[in-house]
Design a protein around this nucleic acid. Structure first.
Length: 568
RNA sequence: UGGGGCGUCGUCAAGUGGCUAAGACACAGGAUUUUGAUUCCUGCAUUCGGAGGUUCGAGUCCUCCCGCCCCAGCCA
């Protein structure tokens, strides 16, 4: 179990719990739960709920259960159960032996239903789904009672029993609560409690052909688990009176439901339907595509779980619908990685440089820091030679003002090595493309030497051609081109048109420091001046890592360059 | 036009009638820097959706108005 970092901000739910603790409302207990439906993968929005529920339990020395709300076998699968468990654990939380399934309560729920029938509070309806909808009325008009509403208890008991043994077809009958067809709250207009579903369940197999609705399951499951604070999202606010009605009629333990606003993030979508669509229409490689806001996608992208927890803490908890800036998440990721990631030099788009006054066949050993932010991280050896690679973007023949990288006739420092000067530019005769730079170095400026005090404006990362290994790197960007992918229906009528065509750039011609060959799946690094990268856990092979860019470094130059567009 | 919620800085978000309306991200300047990174300073709401009212005093209380979100699955 993770420990709560520093001082988590206070929010309204904490205030409620603190008050309940003071008044002894639940004998000092705090017991929460995270209740996903196993019909999809967990995303960053779920992370907020997970951190809230597990975090609160941990903070108040309480408990938090993991419960699968698996009441709809036609949509749920074991695959999702496993993925969800893995993601919650990866995020850093542990439910000990408190793993539950709503389906474990099916017998109990059936008994609850029978109890309500006996009290005259539930009845079997034979209306079709269309008729039920018509009878329900509208937002501004009351509904009408079903003609089957006033059958006798005996008849309802008999019918419900026959539903259970499979005498009726799907859709032929349902069990409904008898509440109030004129209620302003639609949830109270005789909601369906049980429906016939002739599909096998991933946990209970063929035992049942009737399944309880979520609304008839969730509140009672919380009750049976003795949950004290049942946290859920805003849209369930109008379901609360219904849950309370069931609990009250059944006369069983009543947890306190508290609603909070779900997380929204710009430049992405967080609805299961849309995420599923991205996967099914193959706009991404799967649920764990590094561009997906799923926890498995973020894990593969290289986001540390600590950073996600930090983010969830920083976004706060309230009741107002809000959209958090993706930049906050990226800030949390950089903040963590800056402290923890080992540095390395990787040239993503290489440009060859020959140091004309450096001896041939000479390789010089230099020292590089593994992490300047961590004095215990140590250092490593890197090699310098007559031919080098530098980043193509670090050279400009006709630079704009304030460009302080390499330019013809000017100097620049190579990190941990020497100051070099660009003497000549060699171009391809046909295309005019720059293909090589001829430079000279100043032997007096070796890194670490006292005469190395001469200052130059720019410092570049580089690799000796003799000590560079080819590598594939994948550069990721936002999956969507606009802040709110679902807002502008005119400009972006469908998901497809709102996708960012440049969200993935795969580069095979990059070079890395040789030690990176042994990097293990999931290892994270800062490639100097390029960003944070993580060894892809799906396409890397032993000795041949593929790197995913987690996030770029903050880039002040890119901002300046963007403001005053210039040719290369 | 029914019911339930929400409106405090570009984005989140504290604030529970009384010192100058926290903090974070973003943004803008500046310092340090062999990563244009990091770090460090500085700036960034005379005003809390609007209008009235109560009060010595209101973002906080009252009234009216405006705007936004959710609900008419045998989904969760």
């Amino acid at each position: 179990m993770q420990t709560i970092d520093s001082d988590p901000p206070i929010h309204f739910i904490q205030n409620i719990i603190a008050e309940d603790l003071k008044t002894g409302k639940y004998d000092g207990r705090v017991h929460t739960r995270f209740p996903p439906e196993p019909n999809g993968y967990l995303h960053i929005g779920h992370a907020k709920s997970i951190c809230l529920n597990f975090g609160l339990a941990s903070r108040y020395s309480g408990k938090c259960n993991l419960r699968f709300d698996d009441t709809n076998p036609s949509k749920e699968a074991e695959e999702y159960v496993r993925a969800i468990e893995e993601d919650v654990r990866w995020l850093g939380f542990d439910w000990d032996d408190r793993l539950y399934y709503a389906s474990e309560n099916f017998d109990q729920l059936y008994e609850f239903a029978v109890r309500l029938i006996k009290k005259g509070k539930a009845y079997v309806d034979a209306l079709s789904p269309e008729q039920i909808r018509a009878y329900r009325g509208t937002l501004s008009e009351p509904g009408r009672d079903s003609p089957h509403r006033d059958k006798s208890v005996e008849e309802n008991l008999d019918l419900f029993q026959r539903m259970r043994v499979g005498e009726f077809a799907e859709g032929e009958k349902v069990l409904r609560a008898k509440i109030d067809m004129a209620s302003g709250n639609l949830n109270l207009r005789d909601p369906v409690m049980y429906r016939i579903l002739k599909s096998p369940h991933h946990r209970t197999g063929d035992k049942w052909c009737i399944y309880p609705m979520y609304d008839f399951t969730h509140g009672q499951s919380d009750s049976l688990e003795r949950i004290t604070h049942s946290l859920c999202t805003l849209e369930f606010e109008d379901h609360r009176p219904l849950y309370d009605w069931f609990l009250n009629e059944l006369n069983i333990y009543r947890p306190q439901q508290i609603e909070f606003a779900r997380l929204n993030l710009n430049y992405t979508v967080l609805s299961k339907r849309k995420l599923l669509q991205l996967v099914e229409e193959k706009h991404v490689s799967g649920w764990s595509d590094p561009r997906m806001p799923t926890l498995s996608g973020m894990r593969r992208r290289g986001y540390p779980p600590e950073a996600i927890r930090d983010f969830c803490e920083r976004v706060g908890v309230s009741k107002s619908n809000s959209t958090v800036d993706f930049a906050l998440l990226e800030h949390c990721v950089r903040d963590n990685l800056n402290r923890t990631a080992l540095r390395a030099m990787v040239v993503v788009r290489p440009l060859k440089v020959v140091i004309e006054n450096y001896p041939e066949d000479h390789a010089e050993e230099l020292t590089a820091e593994n992490n300047p932010e961590d004095s215990t991280a140590g250092s490593r050896k890197i090699f310098f030679s007559r031919t080098l690679y530098i980043e193509r973007d670090d050279f400009m023949e006709n630079p704009p003002a304030k460009f302080f990288r390499l330019v013809p006739g000017k100097e620049v420092r190579l990190k941990y090595a020497y100051i070099i000067k660009c003497e000549r530019v060699i171009k391809d005769e046909n295309t005019g493309d720059v293909i090589e730079l001829r430079c000279t170095y100043d032997p007096e400026t070796k890194s670490g030497h006292s005469h190395a005090s001469r200052k130059v404006k720019g410092t570049l990362h580089w690799l000796a051609t003799t000590h560079a290994e080819p590598v594939e790197v994948r550069l990721y960007d936002h999956l969507f081109r606009n802040e709110n992918p679902t807002a502008d229906e005119k400009e972006y009528p469908d998901l497809q048109s709102s996708l960012n065509p440049d969200s993935l750039e795969s580069i095979r011609g990059a070079f890395m420091e040789p030690f990176l060959k042994t990097a293990a799946s999931g290892d994270r690094f800062q490639f100097l001046r390029m960003g944070y990268f993580c060894v892809d856990n799906e396409s890397s092979a032993p000795g041949a890592p593929v790197f995913n860019r987690t996030v770029t470094l903050r880039d002040t130059w890119a901002k300046i360059a963007k403001k005053s567009p210039r040719r290369r």
